[in-house]
Amino acid sequence: MAKTNTGLPRPDLAATGGPLRAIRKHWDLYLMALPAIALIVIFKYLPMYGVIIAFKDYNPMQGMLDSEWVGFRFFRELFLFDEFPQVVRNTVAISLMKLAFGFPVPIILALLLNEMKYIRLKRTIQTMTYLPHFISWVIIGGIAIDLLSPSSGMVNKAIELLGFKPIFFLTEEGWFRWILIASDIWKEAGWGAIIFLAALIGINDELYQAATVDGANRWRQIWHISVPGLRATIIVILLLRIGNILDAGFEQVLVMYNPTVYDVSDIIDTYVFRVGLGTMQFSLTAAAGLFKSIIGCILLVLANTLARRMGEEGVY
């Protein structure tokens, strides 16, 4: 394809010599990155020393640096909660389900929208599909609970009309996770599609024209032009999703679940919140956060390496 880079370093940019030399040679490029790096360094890296409180018994009166070291005490405390293994299992399971079923949907939505020729309608639909993103889970969850109510909800009314017994979607362990997945897709698919749409627009029209001339039908065009055009975006977003595998949707679960389905739906974040660890237990919360970060980071590095092996650009 004409647009992608060859992947070979350009002669004028090739690194020859040490960092100083590189900087002197490409000072303009480094200078352009400087504002971003400065922001990150000041507001993200300078406070980074804060991760040590996961290994300390943090006391605001003594400050971060002078609080007592306790090693892995808080990690031990976290891992020793009876529910912890189950909570991690739930988190991973829900996340993977969301990935498997939720990830392709925005891409498909973007492809379908991209194919659409009625411009007005296309724009209206686009606006409508991204609406739910702006409404918080508290509201969406409330609506979902109303819709799914066994006695008065629309969904169950329909099920009854078809001659079946109403389903207790939110108290049946077998159903609950699927409700989480479905409502998540419904809320976020439109928003997720925006970035893919932008990528699709960037694809050169001439490619389609050439394909039409060659007699390629619509499906072939989608498969051979649109999808490859999205490839880089898809991979980057997929990699980041993999890195966030331990974030299964705190707000959503908190709003939608209830004690009868804790067994299948309590995730790390809701558990930590529910046991009241969130209040002033900074060290324990930090330990939980660090645990999530490290796992996420390892997964991202692995996935990114794999992607680069396969010839993709990857995240970094």
């Binding site: 909660f81 209830n258 004690p259 009868t260 804790y262 046991v275």
Partner: peptide
């Protein structure tokens, strides 16, 4: 306390609902 209360709550509801 909170952990115990949660445990009680979860099980009480399951007992009542026959789960």
């Amino acid at each position: 306390f909170t952990e115990l209360r949660n445990y009680m709550e979860e099980n009480s509801m399951k007992f009542i609902m026959g789960k």
